[in-house]
Nucleic acid binder design. Structure first.
Lengths: 232, 232
DNA sequence: ATTGCTGCTGCCAGAAACTGACAATGGAGC
DNA sequence: GCTCCATTGTCAGTTTCTGGCAGCAGCAAT
């Protein structure tokens, strides 16, 4: 979709303006950025709120969009829809509870907006995902939390020879393989990236310290070191 | 999003009208169904085409929307977005070429519409999918085609004892497990549902006949027999 | 209590967009 | 050449939207 109606298009622009800012933005700042009047900004915000957009406003602070991702209208092919449905089924069979529930919620949201007269893509799709490996779901959830919070972790790890070590790592990514999940992290002890099988992590606790580098920077560096593309 | 602007809302309604029909619909039929004038229908169709909606019209036939799925605007949570990205990464590492490419395309489409000022969710997401089991991709593609076309298949199958059989089946679903993929199908020989590991299918060819029941009906029956929910 | 400021809403005039009616155009079929 | 149908251009009237401005409410300072 290249463009929308002028007011609809402006409403999408307003959403992007809100999304780009981390801090609240006042109505007059919005008016200046979009080149419209203050009155129109108040109207537009009211319209978006009425449509369910999670905008919060507070006098003296400004407006902010609650965290989340807004997807504008998309056209997807049949195979693309199959891939999304199968992928969400994979995730609902793997991952920790929060991620599995999120996969089910996302699938429900997507199928809810498909036209009622059309055959339900999810009901029809014959691509199913079997259960995944049984890793420690609470361990997985804790690691995801540390990655998102960009906090260092103190790990007790037992390698394949049975040798136990303890070390502080900067968690970067979790890879889901068929039989195991792997944590990719920068290891302070080795001053290098290392991989840790989740089933060999005896314990993992946040040190309470922030990583000195952004997770996305470390992830990009790790990808470079591993020679991986962007999609894996 | 509960409602949209009146013209925008009508444009979405028009899309749904087109989506519900398998056969082309004329402009006057659209006008009658939406309760608007013929002139307005021509204007609306021109507007949707200008926005990139794949509508085809032919005098004497009517209008039709090319196959595909239109997703209206969606708000997704952070975990939901993680689940979609991870799921598509799973699929891009599994499935046949067409499905893997579709997963990559879907991921590209989704990340393309995220706001540029916001950190790219795909670049940031530390949830990665390792490679899947190496099944016969062309076999998988052929089975998917048969399921979609709702055609009977003549299988040569070798069971775990090494006994080879040949039978005609009605393919219903493909399950992706960690180490194997399974075809779930109605077996004419056994008059029951049976499961076939893809790596033991020696050959699979369409018989050219349609299955006597819709795939979605068989899928629902199979789910009932297997005691499965809707999301697996 | 009063005043000033800010955020926000209601109201209104004018502008812009939209709708439907109708005439006109072009193509196909006879 | 005529008829029919699909589609488009034009225009009057309607609807929606915009921006200006007055007014209200809340808060802080005096």
């Amino acid at each position: 979709m290249e463009s929308l109606l002028s007011r609809s298009a402006r409403l999408l622009d307003l959403i992007q303006v809100l999304r780009r800012r981390r801090r609240p933005i006042t109505a007059s700042e919005i008016a200046e950025e979009l080149g419209i009047s203050l009155r129109t900004v108040y109207r537009d915000i009211a319209t978006l709120m009425a449509q369910g957009m999670p905008i919060e406003g507070e006098a003296g602070l400004g407006y902010v969009l609650k965290p989340g991702f807004f997807l504008p209208p998309l056209m997807l092919g049949e195979n693309e829809m199959d891939a999304i449905i199968l992928g969400l089924r994979f995730v609902s069979q793997r991952g920790d509870k929060a991620l599995a529930v999120a996969a089910e919620d996302a699938l429900a949201k997507i199928t809810a907006v498909l036209p009622p007269g059309l055959e339900d893509a999810a009901a029809t799709s014959g691509l199913l995902a079997g259960p995944g490996s049984t890793s420690d779901a609470s361990r997985l959830a804790a690691l995801r939390r540390a990655i998102r919070a960009e906090e260092k972790l103190r790990l007790s790890y037992v390698d394949k020879l049975g040798v136990a070590t303890e070390r502080v790592v900067w968690p970067v990514a979790i890879g889901f393989f068929d039989a195991v999940e792997m944590l990719a992290a920068w290891c302070e002890t080795r001053s290098d990236f290392r991989h840790f099988r989740l089933d060999r992590i005896a314990s993992a606790a946040s040190t309470g310290e922030r990583m000195p580098k952004r997770q996305r920077i470390l992830l990009a560096e790790w990808r470079l070191v591993e020679g991986l593309g962007d999609l894996i």
